[in-house]
Design a binder for these strands. Structure first.
Lengths: 107, 107
DNA sequence: TAACGTATTAGCAAATTCGTTAATCGTTGA
DNA sequence: TCAACGATTAACGAATTTGCTAATACGTTA
């Protein structure tokens, strides 16, 4: 849930690619390893980083562990950070300010 | 302008702190070095990373170089990335989808 | 021009990250 | 129970990042 972990997680092209894959459907570690040219252990550690950041969730089903994108966490973290640096009174368009108010109330 | 540089730039607490300072007012390298317990050369390199990512801009005035936050770039990059992974048909609120459409048209 | 203050670049050591292979854990099914 | 398969952890080396100090460039001003 910390910005530290979230931005550390996003500061890696393979991890962002994994998020892109998971945006379409749930996948297992070996599914993802097959789509990259990357070993399963490497993918597993990337997934661990993403999960600790709260950006993905996992669920074991039999032998397999399925990973899925945590959309709310991603959107809330990034927009929350952006609008914290760009306060509501600032040079934002009206619609953006409306979103910012919603987020700050929800948090 | 690339996501690579932007997320690499944001994956550092000192750099995010610099952005937070610059969100309030323009500052010089030595201003920032004084607010941190960090040497001016270190701050200078952080500022260089942030500038290459397009997140801050600089302007020389006499002896001093003033740095300022590039709000548009920050907001557009982060919301653009977030809404790319969370397509308009997805589980977003209506206002968020409107923003997403705006961004994709602008890019 | 010479001297000073600011900013950046160069060079270095410590720490971290990334991907690989080998070993271990967990689950299924003969 | 044990053999097979998927996932994770351990251990290693290569590459990158981060901070420092020293040196250099840029700009003002006496």
């Amino acid at each position: 849930m910390s910005l530290d972990r979230i931005f550390e997680a996003l500061a890696s092209r393979p991890r962002r690619q994994i998020l892109a894959y998971l945006a379409e459907l749930e996948l297992t570690t070996s599914d993802l390893a097959a789509r990259f040219a990357m070993s399963a252990p490497a993918v597993s550690r990337h997934l661990s980083v993403l999960e600790q950041a709260g950006l993905v969730g996992s669920e074991r089903r039999g032998q397999f562990v399925y990973y899925r994108l945590n959309r709310d966490s991603l959107v809330n973290s990034l927009t929350g950070f952006a609008f914290e640096l760009c306060p509501v009174g600032g040079p934002l368009k009206r619609e953006s300010r409306a979103i910012a108010r919603k987020k700050s109330k929800a948090t």
